[in-house]
């Protein structure tokens, strides 16, 4: 090709590029369904750790995020992932069958949250103090099922000193599930059994003590859960892609989780067989720690 021709070609390509009406290729969009009012996980101001981790992923994929905000209640996954209106839900437990779940990016446990000056060191559900202290527990009330601590306490006949806090709460307030930790800070309960990330985040500013429940399973239910990203059951390609991104940024993600005070357990045991813990819980065995 003559030099002049090359210049003409180059200019033509340049001009064509501009005149096609786009100055750059359209950015990829990650459509994420999230609760607009549920710290530490997410809120519509992007202040949750799921929001922050989503931003890390979007940056890696050179994508922008479109959020669909919806309180995470019954029907959440059906009305988001299943309709195809959304691609991802940032926090989904491994073993959850309403979505395809990536490898977990964290594993946590239910924790005791108590006052700093409390003499009792809480670790086991068998602690005698649990029979006499005022114990706060999260309540869900779904089809005969409830949070693992609610089952464990009931199984031990510990009911009269238990105060329940529904995870639904009053949605007009910020972060309704956090009321249970507020109750510890106010002294309305002496100790509360709370899902790890919730306990860790809200206990920190109030200097409350946080200690994981030592039992991995109890009363037929697991107390530890591995959490990954959920995608539509038909979208294994996205799941695989996200697995790579999560692995690539594992240290950054861990830093975010540490910043938010999320109590974390080693991921290796979960990665081996995510549903194993659940199966063992049913048969009353202890899952590997």
């Amino acid at each position: 090709m003559s030099f002049r021709f090359k210049i003409v070609l180059l200019v033509a390509v340049f001009v064509l590029g501009f005149s096609s009406g786009q100055s750059e290729p359209a950015k990829r969009v990650l459509r994420i369904a999230a609760d607009p009012n549920n710290l530490p996980f997410s809120n519509d101001r992007g202040e949750g750790f799921e929001n922050r981790i989503a931003a890390v992923i979007a940056r890696d994929l050179n994508a922008e995020i479109h959020y669909t905000w919806r309180a995470q209640r019954r029907g959440f996954f059906r009305e988001t992932l299943k309709t195809g209106d959304c691609d991802m839900v940032m926090g989904v437990p491994v073993g959850f069958d309403k979505a395809l779940v990536t490898s977990p990016y964290y594993r946590s446990a239910y924790v005791f949250v108590s006052c700093p000056d409390s003499e009792t060191r809480f670790a086991s559900l068998d602690a005698p103090a649990l029979r006499t202290l005022r114990v706060g527990v999260q309540l869900i009330g779904d089809d005969g099922a409830n949070t693992p601590p609610a089952h464990a306490l009931a199984a031990r006949g510990i009911v009269t000193n238990v105060i329940g806090f529904t995870v639904y709460g009053d949605y007009r307030q910020p972060n309704p599930p956090a009321r249970i930790v507020d109750a510890v800070a106010r002294g309305d309960v002496d100790v509360a059994l709370v899902w790890g990330p919730l306990g860790g985040y809200f206990a920190n500013p109030k200097s409350l003590k946080v200690s994981p429940v030592s039992e991995t399973t109890d009363s037929g239910v697991p107390f530890q859960f591995a959490i990954g990203i959920g995608v539509s059951r038909k979208n294994s390609a996205l799941r695989d892609e996200l697995n790579l991104v999560l692995a690539k940024h594992d240290r950054e993600i861990k830093r975010i989780l540490d910043d938010f005070g999320v109590p974390q357990l080693p991921l290796e045991a979960a990665a081996a067989n995510p549903t194993n813990a659940l199966a063992m819980a049913q048969s009353g065995q202890e899952a590997p720690k």
């Binding site: 609760d35 549920n38 996980f41 309180a71 995470q72 209640r73 019954r74 959440f76 926090g91 989904v92 437990p93 491994v94 073993g95 959850f96 069958d97 999260q138 869900i140 779904d142 089809d143 005969g144 099922a145 409830n146 949070t147 693992p148 995870v167 639904y168 309704p176 599930p177 899902w195 990330p197 919730l198 037929g220 239910v221 697991p222 859960f225 959490i227 659940l278 819980a281 049913q282």
Partner: peptide, 18 residues
């Protein structure tokens, strides 16, 4: 049947399959 992993308001639990 008590085998189902579930998640509401960011809280994981195991629910009964009914």
């Amino acid at each position: 049947e008590a085998t189902e992993v579930n998640y509401i308001s960011g809280t994981p639990y195991v629910g009964a399959n009914v």
